[in-house]
Amino acid sequence: MYDSSLSTLIFHELMNGKVINRTVLNNSGEFTANPLFKEVMENLKDYRTQYEMSGCEFIDESEFIFIRDRASSRDDLKTDITMKACILLLILGKYINENNYRLSKLTEPSGGITRADIEAIQEEEDTVELIEKAKLKSDLHAEIKNVLVNRNIMLEKPSEESYILSDAGRAFFTEVIESYV
């Protein structure tokens, strides 16, 4: 049986374009099980039916859940937000690679992209050009917060202003990198 209070939270998350990840960061900055994800997985058939009846495609992966408009074809998934997310993930990956950081800076609670990192990224000449061509706001930090953090693709570490990829973020990052390699 579903939990109505969790169901309401799930509805708001999904309808606002957010991803529900298998794990979230707790107050100590460690990964912990996400009760929203657990609720959906325990009542998957009911949730899938609910969103499909509302005209949504319900995407449940082993690490995350999201919905998208069923009316759009699978080939037409390059929405403005999707493209911005891909570009931002590529920019972050480029920064990690060019500065010889380990991938764990993006993926592990012990790492994290800091505001100073974002400012350094924004000052790179080729990044400025990418930001202009992609029609991103000149404030890269605001774009990362709006496109990646607010949609749960990246998680903000509670004790500091730094960000790591969520379960969905790691999957999307891998997909983006494989597409462009």
Rank of each mutant, 00 (worst) to 15 (best):
G112K: 02
F173E: 00
N100V: 06
E143D: 14
M154R: 01
Y47D: 05
F64N: 07
A142I: 12
K157V: 07
A142P: 07
N97G: 05
T32H: 05
I65Y: 07
E30S: 12
E161K: 01
E63A: 08
N152W: 06
P35V: 02
E108A: 15
I10V: 08
L90F: 08
N21T: 05
L136D: 05
I144A: 07
S4A: 12
T107G: 01
F31P: 01
L88M: 00
I65A: 08
N26R: 02
M154F: 04
S62G: 09
E175G: 14
S104K: 10
I67N: 04
S110Y: 06
E125G: 15
A171T: 10
R151W: 04
K105H: 05
I59V: 11
P158Y: 01
I113M: 02
L130A: 13
E161N: 06
T79C: 05
L9D: 08
A142D: 14
D69G: 08
H12K: 14
Q122P: 13
T127V: 07
S162K: 06
I81S: 09
T174C: 10
E98R: 03
S62Q: 14
N43H: 06
F173T: 00
V181S: 14
E125L: 15
V19M: 03
E125M: 15
K94Q: 03
M41W: 03
F31L: 04
